Simulated scan of single mutants.
Amino acid sequence: MKAWLIAFAFTQAVEVPIYLRAGAGWRAALLASTLTHPLVWFGFSTVRGLGLSYSGTLVVVEAFAILVEAAWLSSRRVKRAFLWSLLANLTSVTLGFLSRAAFGWP
């Protein structure tokens, strides 16, 4: 649970400023990845159990996050919600991998 909380805080630190830049309010920005992160984090092994490779699983769970967050942002009237969600999620997953390689976390 501690590892998830650290990863969640990292994701929020990366994605919230992007969503604020997109024109989402604080609540919408905070809730976007709050809606998806637990499902992505804890569902990763379930999706992986379907026989997908690590990379394939990553694509599936990130696509889920991008689509759900885009739908959420769109419902909050954020313009170009899909592009902002794509940017936020690609940025957070990339920085997460770089941080893990460099520092061993999140």
Rank of each mutant, 00 (worst) to 15 (best):
F103M: 12
A29E: 02
F64I: 01
F103W: 13
S33P: 04
A29Y: 04
V47I: 14
I18E: 05
A71C: 09
L73F: 07
V68R: 01
L73Y: 06
A7P: 01
A32D: 02
W26V: 14
S45R: 12
A81Y: 00
T11L: 05
V47P: 00
F97M: 15
T11W: 01
F8C: 06
V14A: 11
W41N: 01
F64V: 01
R80Q: 07
G43K: 00
A63Y: 02
L52H: 08
G96F: 10
Y54R: 15
L87P: 00
F8N: 10
F82P: 00
A9W: 12
L58T: 04
I66D: 00
R80N: 11
L87F: 04
T57V: 02
L30G: 12
V68K: 02
A71L: 14
R80H: 13
F44D: 11
W26S: 09
I66L: 05
L39N: 06
V47K: 05
G49N: 10
A22H: 03
L67W: 10
E15V: 15
G96W: 05
S55H: 14
L67V: 15
H37D: 10
S45I: 14
V61E: 09
A29D: 02
V16K: 01
E62L: 13
V59M: 06
Q12P: 09
L87T: 07
S99R: 13
A102T: 14
V40K: 00
L58N: 11
F82H: 05
I66G: 00
T34A: 15
V14K: 03
A101T: 11
R21E: 11
G56K: 11
W84K: 01
V47A: 06
Y54L: 15
F103D: 04
F10Q: 08
W26Q: 07
A28L: 06
F42N: 03
F8V: 12
V60H: 07
G96H: 05
V78A: 07
T91I: 08
L39K: 06
L31H: 04
F8A: 13
P106I: 04
T57P: 03
A24M: 08
V16L: 10
M1Q: 10
E62D: 08
T11H: 03
L52N: 03
S74E: 15
